[in-house]
Design a protein around this nucleic acid. Sequence first.
DNA 1: GCGAATGTGTTACACTATAACATCACAGCC
DNA 2: GGCTGTGATGTTATAGTGTAACACATTCGC
Lengths: 145, 145
Amino acid sequence: MTGAIPHGAASGGEAGARAALGKNDRAVLDVLRGARSGLGAYDILDALRPAGLKAPLQVYRALNRLMARGLVHKIESLNAYVACARPGDACAAALAICRACGAVSEFTDAEIDRRLNCWCREAAFTPEQVTLEIRGLCTDCAVEA
Amino acid sequence: MTGAIPHGAASGGEAGARAALGKNDRAVLDVLRGARSGLGAYDILDALRPAGLKAPLQVYRALNRLMARGLVHKIESLNAYVACARPGDACAAALAICRACGAVSEFTDAEIDRRLNCWCREAAFTPEQVTLEIRGLCTDCAVEA
DNA sequence: GCGAATGTGTTACACTATAACATCACAGCC
DNA sequence: GGCTGTGATGTTATAGTGTAACACATTCGC
């Protein structure tokens, strides 16, 4: 693996789909993949109530497993979740989030990764997880404003 | 101003201390400056109860004003707050947070700023606020482990 | 069968944040 | 003085986010 900062939590670059996903995991992932913006855990729960889910914990457990595999990202600044757009990418995921329409774009930048690793090395800090989010306005919403 | 992504929210580079801070703002800032790790809003509230504060909203309002001035950062991944270590810095603040002891180190990197602005330009995304957090282990906690 | 490991279901609760409304303090002005 | 505008403050209630604790089910290997 190239970068020292893992994308999800699974360290092996080829990992991420070892064991089969559980029933709830699959359902939560499908809901997230069908959304074009971040969803709150309770939004997901509402979407899955018809499927039989009743409690927040069922959703949170699925989200935690999916995040551990790098299939889902948490948008920390929104307490929301999105399906990963580039599973398997070794770099830390950066998310650009439109504050008007909620659209989320995911990208990675090897140079940013390198600079972060560089700082960590100098500071003797052991990185485990990176959160990089840009909030602002997407193209469409910027012209309207 | 050099970077296109503001550090806090005040756009004028020399701004940040225009009007005087309110009573509660001052008190909250003092509590944060006295802590060496991030504090939750309710931790701050508890610390200020002897000073007469009673409700969460009093703390949240102060925090919002302080963040607007770039004097305080929110640690999104922890729902906690820290005093800014380098007020006036034009770059987006990056926070390295030790998951063991909670210590927070703040740094900036002009190259990262440049790369982020570069991506935004290409994607026609108007950036307003950047969150960059690294979770991991600080030097002291890494040796113990 | 039996134990270990993992996923699942449920209730109750803790933590984080804001809505809505009332009050107070101060500055400028007629 | 009296009026008004603006912004900080105070208070109650409530919304939103996340986890603890416990019980049950399934699967896999011995």
